[in-house]
Design a protein around this nucleic acid. Structure first.
Lengths: 230, 230
DNA sequence: ATCGGGTATCTGGTATACCAATAATCTGCC
DNA sequence: GGCAGATTATTGGTATACCAGATACCCGAT
């Protein structure tokens, strides 16, 4: 008999329910739009969204419920659904929480990750070590986020990964902006090198501390320069 | 004319929507039931829940959506909604995340809380300092949770508070069980005293480290003794 | 012209009907 | 008696209809 293992099951499309579809569409729209650019509040109309997406209100409402849970929108009864503008205080709080989680991930990564995995952190910044990251600020910004995400994934703690990815969605834009201010980029890259060294040396507590200080530095930076936030 | 300030506006009832009502009812039912006692999976029937609660499926579904987001239930298309049993690995991960957040809260509390607020931590354990907490294990268990919640609230970071309270809901049961095993309770109370002293002395990094070690100790304990989990 | 009140309209919240996919059951052939 | 195929029942997913509160608008009295 043919062993079924020999067939690589087609991943099927399976795709997703309309609810998931609506969720992804709305989330993309929200994160893409520059919320902090416009001064007025952005209101979402369930019925209009339903029409635009070509589905009924039900999956749209369920998607909005999830987005509300995640802190992207706020629903007021018989008023409307509004895209949330985070205050500076909230952003700083998120960075604090992020720093706490990432530092713990760094500690766990020291115990759990392989040498090869830790070494892969260096490859995220291929040429930036030569200096002057501010000249390739967009590429560096992406690499920067990838770096932190990698540390978190190397911690191999699913809970931390989930919580962090949620926080990242909110903070992503700010991270990029902050890099362009002051000496943030130059400061950042030096700290990254230190972090990588600590991880490779399996110095868990040191890596943990460095990651935390790095995150707290960003928080302080935003607290000081984040006047574009509410 | 009468100044409206002279009227103390009645807080109104406002109360809540049926969705919130259903959410709270379901959450209470889930957290109250001993999930890990019974070996079989618990399935929830939307239609039955609707009847029992006396509302339609819509608010029940929305409540279930939130609970799914929070990790209490898992919904399989055309299969059913199931109460999630956390694996030991997941529980340990949650405790790790909790330790990370609480330790950051401790650090922040050192900078932000008043002396009086920090001193209030001592009042949580009125008589247990005399020793033998294992004789009043139930009271001590409650006080224990209150202690950690207080530290987090003194950090005055809303994001951390929200994330932690969510984690606590999942871990609460385990925390109590762990206290009854081995010397956990005695060990725990000694560490609490150290934590309070560090906080009162405004030694932020020390308090942070102690809280983290305390949390990691619990994680290791559960990892070792938590065989009652899957 | 301005203000007050009443009405039309719009909004999210809720109830309900229908659908498709799965699982449970039945049926009939071997 | 056992098993394959068809049928029925059940379930979550979706669409739609209706409700009540809140807002916006209109109109008449002053």
């Amino acid at each position: 008999m043919v062993k079924s293992d020999q067939f690589s099951i087609t991943p099927i499309v399976a795709s997703s329910s309309l609810r998931t579809l609506a969720y992804e569409a709305l989330k993309a729209a929200i994160t893409k739009m520059d919320i902090y650019g416009r001064p007025d509040e952005v209101r979402l109309d369930e019925r209009k969204l339903s029409q635009d997406l070509g589905v009924s209100r039900t999956p749209v409402r369920e998607a909005l419920t999830v987005l509300e849970q995640e802190g992207f929108v706020r629903s007021e009864a018989r008023r409307g659904v509004f895209v949330i503008k985070k205050t500076k205080k909230e952003i700083v709080g998120m960075i604090h929480a992020w720093a706490a989680l990432e530092s713990m991930a760094a500690r766990l990564a020291c115990e759990r990750a392989t040498d090869a995995q830790l070494k892969s952190l260096r490859e995220i910044f291929p040429e930036f070590y030569e200096g002057r990251p501010s000249e390739h600020i967009d590429e560096y910004s992406d690499a920067n986020i990838r770096f932190h995400q990698t540390i978190i994934s190397l911690g191999q703690c699913e809970v931390i990964q989930d919580l962090s990815s949620n926080l990242l969605m909110h903070v992503r834009g700010i991270r990029n902006t902050a890099l362009r201010q002051g000496e943030r980029a130059e400061k950042s890259i030096k700290e990254h090198v230190q972090i990588i060294k600590a991880l490779e040396a399996r110095k868990g507590e040191l890596a943990e501390g460095l990651v935390r200080e790095h995150g707290l530095g960003l928080a302080a930076h935003v607290h000081q320069y984040g006047d574009y936030l509410v």
